[in-house]
């Protein structure tokens, strides 16, 4: 069976601030139906790498391509294919939880937006909060809303920055299951995480981000997440 085409490929991708790299160059390839996890201690450069992959940060060197083309978030096609949930926490003050999801779904041309939104509200335990403004939600509930927004729209590549943050253990397990389903449906998943359980259940390979950024097996990355290992 032929291998699926790469959804994301990074070749000696170097990222940093003020011209200074925060980590070693990263080289990896992510194909459809697969997941790669970025692991590393705080400040190692995981989120910075994700921002470069999303076109939100100019790389210092190397190349990064999505679906065969250099990353350019200014193109509508890129935005149609890449769904990202970072740690940003901004809301329209007048829009309810459900309306944020409708805006996202309809903006991506989802025909049955109503059903999709209802389904995700239920899945993320937000049905009872559909009509409230996001500012009234708890920190964990707002995180759930962000994750729901990342999933309510079509995508080929799902990029998540520490999706486990601020979630209770049951929701963490649910997110892990959701990401496994994402792969099975043919999507590609790139996550940065500190959660060994999420890493073990979702990722097919891992990138340890640090002075020498390198691709490793998942079990090796799980070992690296133990206290004091990195």
């Amino acid at each position: 069976m032929p291998r699926p085409a790469p959804v994301l490929s990074a070749n000696r991708l170097e990222v940093g601030w003020v011209g200074r790299p925060v980590c070693g160059p990263a080289t990896f390839t992510l194909r459809a139906g697969r997941a790669i996890a970025l692991v590393g201690p705080n400040g190692s450069g995981k989120s910075t790498l994700l921002r470069a992959v999303l076109g939100l940060l100019e790389p210092l060197g190397g190349t990064v391509k999505v679906l065969g083309s250099p990353v350019d978030e200014r193109t509508a096609t890129f935005r149609a294919h890449v769904s990202a949930v970072l740690d940003d926490d901004a809301w329209f003050p007048a829009l309810t939880v459900a309306e944020h999801l409708y805006l996202t779904a309809r903006g991506h041309g989802v025909a049955g937006a109503g059903d999709e939104v209802d389904e995700l509200l239920d899945e993320f335990g937000l049905t009872g909060h559909a009509e409230v403004l996001p500012n009234a939600l708890s920190s964990g509930q707002r995180r759930r809303l962000l994750l729901a927004a990342g999933l309510v729209r079509p995508r080929s590549l799902l990029v998540l920055d520490e999706p486990e943050q601020r979630l209770d253990s049951a929701m963490r397990r649910h997110v892990a299951d959701r990401l496994v389903a994402e792969k099975q449906a043919g999507g590609a998943v790139l996550i940065a995480t500190h959660d060994a359980e999420l890493l073990a259940s979702v990722a097919d390979s891992a990138v340890i981000v640090g002075d020498e950024t390198r691709v490793v097996r998942v079990d090796e990355a799980v070992d690296a997440l133990r206290p004091g290992a990195l």
């Binding site: 459809a32 509508a76 149609a80 294919h81 779904a105 309809r106 903006g107 991506h108 041309g109 989802v110 025909a111 049955g112 999709e116 999933l151 729209r153 079509p154 995508r155 080929s156 799902l158 994402e182 449906a185 043919g186 999507g187 590609a188």
Partner: peptide
């Protein structure tokens, strides 16, 4: 896109 609702309308 590979994943997500299959029934789509034009982008608004």
């Amino acid at each position: 896109p590979a994943v997500g609702p299959a029934d789509r309308t034009p982008i608004p």
